[in-house]
């Protein structure tokens, strides 16, 4: 899984390319935690280029949201239809801040 970053409106925008699953999740979690430890606390996760996300991926999002609670922000954008369904089934669309597009997330 390839992570690329950009800075917009004070948010760290992270693009995830590939699949967020058992194999990639541990590495992704480490990378995000390192960013948080280095005081980056406002994120937009853009999943435009993510093919699928298994529960390992959801776990990383939940852990990140819990870490940032009270000291930062996590916004989620650009879910494909399949990941949107997974968010719906798991109730994640109710506990995470989900936006249609990156622009809406940054607005």
């Amino acid at each position: 899984m390839q992570l690329t970053y950009s800075e917009k409106n004070g948010y760290k925008v992270v693009h995830f390319e590939g699949s967020l699953d058992t194999v990639t999740s541990p590495e992704v979690e480490k990378t995000i935690n390192a960013l948080i430890d280095a005081d980056t606390v406002k994120f937009v996760f853009n999943f435009d280029k993510t093919r699928y996300m298994s529960s390992s991926g959801l776990r990383v999002l939940l852990a990140t949201a819990k870490k940032l609670k009270g000291k930062g922000e996590l916004k989620i954008s650009n879910l494909n239809e399949m990941i949107e369904e997974v968010f719906d089934i798991s109730g994640f669309n109710q506990i995470l801040n989900v936006y249609k597009t990156e622009e809406e997330a940054l607005a």
Binding site: S54, S55, S56, L58, R59, L62, A63, A65, K66, K69, V86, I89, S90, G91, Q94, I95, L96
Partner: peptide
């Protein structure tokens, strides 16, 4: 599945999906 962020345990979701 309907719990809030704080109440949610990390894990246990896979089978539900």
């Amino acid at each position: 599945v309907h719990l809030s962020l704080d109440e949610r345990e990390i894990g246990g979701l896979g089978i539900h999906l």
